[in-house]
């Protein structure tokens, strides 16, 4: 496997008034070049914090991010900026992430100017027009402002901006969550096309399990700052090993009324707080399989099948327990 990105024992803690938020706790994984790793979990599980750590937008409490074989934190100033050009981000809210006072052309050009790409403004403008074409925005709209575009088109503009520096890795943080179904499909297709054309690698963060399944080669499930399961996509969906994964999959309302099941088990309770999380397995207060061991000892991430990792003292093995 040709490794592009490696997160090594990443930890991020934020001190707050009544304790410490354990946003990301000892998270390690790799992403291969050209791969899409899906990252799922509920609000507060640390998935967006993890994205920001990888981009070095926030500094980890401990641990390291390796990109193309180099430890990002070991670099300073210009060298770090040069390496970071290879990683870009697309955000959930295309309304909030585009400056309303800038024309679309300028928005897309900004990273080019900042990194002094191209020899003249005219050359950069040509590059912008080509990027607009690649994401399906007519180059004639160069001088328009963000409010003159629909939500789907604005997301395309955000994608063009992310592509400007010809990155290898794009972190997509809920890129289709704010879009209507028909527009969502257009953006997902665009992301697939761009990946095929440019050999892009995606870290795709989403709470939508159906979308993640469609786009990802592997999927990582997080709960309260930790990885609970990491697996190639199909095995995870057909045979989840972690009870939390199974609950999540069953909770998604499927667009098929014949699959209704009013008796199926639901995950009880609230999403626990990442401030002073419970000891032992962090999922144990909501888990039907929890016993004494789970209340006291944190489970390790163990390989259950080739490439299929699960952190649970009592993983689901070919049996129905709820």
């Amino acid at each position: 496997m040709n490794e592009l990105l490696r997160a090594e024992r990443l930890v991020k803690e934020f001190p707050v008034k009544n304790g410490v938020v354990h946003a990301v706790s000892d998270v390690s994984f790799t992403v291969a070049k050209g791969e899409t790793l899906g990252l799922v979990g509920e609000s507060g599980c640390g998935k967006s914090t993890l994205g920001k750590l990888i981009l070095n937008l926030i500094t980890p409490t401990s641990g390291a991010v390796w990109f193309k074989g180099t430890d990002l934190s070991a670099l300073r100033g210009r060298e770090q900026r040069r390496l970071r050009r290879g990683m870009q981000m697309i955000f959930q809210d295309p309304y909030a992430s585009l400056d309303p006072r800038m024309t679309v052309g300028r928005i897309i050009m900004e990273p080019l100017t900042a990194h002094r790409v191209g020899s003249s403004r005219a050359e950069r403008a040509d590059m912008v027009r080509s990027l607009m074409e690649q994401v399906g925005i007519r180059p004639e709209f160069y001088g328009r402002y963000p409010h003159q575009f629909s939500g789907g088109q604005r997301q395309r503009i955000g994608i063009a901006r992310a592509l400007a520096l010809d990155p290898e890795l794009i972190i997509c943080d809920e890129p289709v969550s704010a879009l209507d179904v028909s527009i969502q499909a257009q953006i997902l297709n665009l992301l697939s096309d761009l990946q095929a054309a440019r050999g892009l690698t995606y870290l795709f963060i989403s709470h939508d399990l159906n979308v993640v399944r469609y786009l990802s080669d592997r999927v990582m499930v997080m709960f309260l700052g930790q990885i609970c399961e990491l697996s190639p996509t199909e095995p995870l969906y057909s045979q989840p090993r972690h009870p939390y994964t199974k609950f999540l999959l069953e909770a998604v309302p499927q667009p098929d009324p014949t699959l209704r099941d009013d008796a199926r088990a639901l995950l009880a309770g609230e999403v626990a707080s990442a401030i002073n999380p419970p000891p032992g397995c962090r999922f144990h207060p909501r888990c039907p399989c929890a016993d004494d061991l789970c209340r006291h000892k944190q489970p390790d991430l163990v390989e259950m099948a080739p490439g299929h990792l699960c952190a649970c003292h009592h993983p689901l093995v070919d049996r129905e327990i709820f």
């Binding site: 179904v181 028909s182 499909a185 159906n210 979308v211 469609y214 786009l215 080669d217 009324p257 014949t258």
Partner: peptide, 30 residues
């Protein structure tokens, strides 16, 4: 509706949903 919707818009909506769609296969989009 879910078995046999008739309007092209409804059909388009249903087809746009990623359900079991394998990676690499295009999603229908309106």
């Amino acid at each position: 509706l879910f078995r046999d919707c008739a309007h092209p818009y409804t059909r388009g909506l249903m087809a746009s949903l990623p359900r079991m769609t394998p990676k690499g296969q295009r999603l229908y989009n309106i």
